[in-house]
Design a protein around this nucleic acid. Sequence first.
DNA 1: CATCCGTGGGA
DNA 2: TTCCCAAGGAT
Length: 299
Amino acid sequence: MNDLHRPVLEWYDEHARELPWRGLEATPWSVMVSEFMLQQTPVARVIPVHAAWLERWPAPADLAAEEPGEAVRMWGRLGYPRRALRLHAAAVAITESHGGEVPSDHAELLALPGVGDYTAAAIASFAFGQRHVVLDTNVRRVFARAASGVEFPANSVNRAERDLAAGLLPEDEATAATWSVAVMELGALVCTAKAPRCHSCPIEDRCAWVAEGRPAHAGPPRKVQGFAGTDRQVRGRLLSVVREADHAVAKPRLDVVWDEPVQRERALASLLADGLLVQVVATGPDGLPDGDHPHYALP
DNA sequence: CATCCGTGGGA
DNA sequence: TTCCCAAGGAT
């Protein structure tokens, strides 16, 4: 135990949010679904969608039995819908190769579609109580401040940062798992990116950044992605039309969402390439091909 | 290693 | 209103 463990663990015991994917009733599958949804999407928006998913698909095999497009539709407006496709693909892999049970082995988790370093460590830690370095944006920010004395971590994880996190991880397996979620929670609720609540922080008196007088960020500028006018925006509009439709959508209904034709066609092509949309042969009431326009649907 | 991939809420 | 940013992954 170093001198950070006890205050952070005690703070977590008192202040942790009760979330659907925490607690004794949560299954590994529930944890896994939450981790996919929480990749770049805030907790408040995930909660209702996560509940709907778990009700409809209580186990990986239930999702695997559906068409991938159903996952995309149920994903709603969480953003980055390729995650829905990957989660469906992961459910298929679990059903076919892991007996329908979310694997507990870190390497097996990492091999699943959509599971990277963070998500593999998170599932192994939070669903199975294992000891892993869990480095998400919250943890990185807490360690940058408390241990390194800077406001924000580097743009990408480096060796020194991973070594630092490994060195801070409690030896005991169960304690390490709780530590990981506790540091994340501290970053989410207290050690926030903007306006951190240092006076509510259990390690304020041990924080290197506070000791330095909370110096402003001095490293290379942190990149913030634009959105307006990007292909991402166009893709979002196109997919939204199909997602909300009951039947295949004819091309003219997609053309109206974006004026610039070159970018619009590029975005549509990329959605098809990603497998988020498929072109279908639409049929009218007579069973014959319907009109001259191509039609699009979820896969 | 940099870039791309959605969406919405808060300051 | 604009800007920031939110439990990342794949290429």
